[in-house]
Simulated assay, not measured.
Amino acid sequence: MIAAVIDLGTNTFHLIIAEISATEVKVLLKTNEPVRLGQGRINENIIIPEAFERGIATLKFFKQEIIKHQVDVVKATATSAVRSADNGGDFVNAAKTDAGIDIEVISGDQEAAYIFKGVKATGAIQATSLIMDIGGGSTEFIIADADGILWKASYNIGAARLTQAYFHSDPIIQTDQLAILDHLKDTLQELEAACALYKPQHLVGSAGAFESFTGMIDPSIDLNSVKSAPIDLNDYHKLAASLIASTHAEREIMPNLIALRVDMIVIAALISNYVIANCGIKSISLSTYDLKMGVLYGLASAKLEG
C-alpha cells in the first residue's frame, strides 16, 4: 500500500509518501512548504487571503506528487490555525474543490495522540518522559512511558501566536519576556500538576524548533537520517540564552537556523526554558518523528490489523 500523509501545520505544510508493507514503512518522498497559514492574524482567528492562497497552491502541488506516486490512501490533518480560524471551514472546502484534498480538522487532544505515536516509533521513550511539540498555533504536551500515554493536553501557546502577541522589540525586551512567562504560568498549571504527579525527568522535543536546537548545537548530526538524538542540557541553555539576547539580523546569519524560525525560535526557547525549569526536567532529547509520522504509523497499524 502506498500512503500519503499531509500535515497542515500553522507554519508549515508537510507531505510524506510511504510504502507500507507487513515488515516496514519505507518513505518514498518527504517534502514541506513554509505556508505560514497563521501569518498576521492568528490571534484574531483569521486566515488572511495571502496565506489562504499559499495554502491551496501548496495542496495543489502536493496533489500532483500524490498522483505521480500512485498513492492508494491519503490522510490530511489540519491543526491549530485551521481549527481556530473563523474561515477554517472555507479553507477545508477550497482544499476539496480546488486541490482535491479531503482535510480532517483534528482536535488538540487528537494532535497530542498522533505526536505520541510518532515519538514512540523512534524507540526514544524508555522511562516516564514529557513529550513537547511546539507548533505555530498550539503546543502539545504528553507524559508517557513505554506502555503508553499517562496524560496529555494541548494549549494555544504556539510560537506564531506568542510572537504576534508579545514579540514587539528587537531583541526581545525583558518586559515582553516576563509577559510571556506570566502567560505560560497562567496557562500551564495543569501541566505542572501532572509533572508533579508523574515526575518525568526527561523531555523529548518533537521535531520543529528542537531540530533547530539540535542542528545548531551539533552541526554534525544529519537530521534527515536520525530518528532521535540527545541534546546536552548545558549546551541547550547556552544556545537559548544566545537566541533570546540576539537581534533578528544576528539570528538570520546563525548556521542551521531556517528563515521560518528566525523569530519564532526565541519564543520556542522561552517556552522550553519555562518547562525545563518548572517541570523537574533533568535531560532532553530530540525526536525527528512528530505528528505526521504518528499519522503514518497509525495507517500502518491499521493495515497490519486489517
Rank of each mutant, 00 (worst) to 15 (best):
G123M: 03
F116D: 04
S206H: 05
D232Y: 10
S285K: 09
L270A: 03
R83M: 01
G88S: 12
I131D: 02
S246L: 03
G294N: 02
I253Y: 09
I125G: 14
E250K: 12
R36C: 03
I253S: 14
L233G: 13
I271W: 07
H248C: 08
F141R: 00
S154Y: 07
K68D: 12
A245G: 14
Y198F: 11
Q177R: 15
I180W: 03
T23K: 15
D186V: 08
T79Y: 12
T97R: 12
V5H: 00
E140F: 03
M254E: 09
I231T: 12
D222V: 09
D147C: 01
I221Q: 06
L223C: 10
S220F: 08
L243H: 10
A78C: 11
D7A: 06
L188G: 12
E252P: 00
F213V: 08
I66F: 11
V27D: 08
A127Y: 05
M254W: 10
S272T: 15
A259I: 04
R36E: 11
I106E: 14
V275S: 12
K26M: 06
A196V: 00
R261V: 00
G9Q: 04
F62W: 07
Q164C: 00
Q189A: 13
T187A: 05
I180Y: 01
A76Y: 11
I281S: 06
R161F: 05
Q70M: 00
L181S: 09
L243A: 06
T58F: 07
F61L: 08
G158D: 11
K117F: 01
K185D: 15
T31P: 11
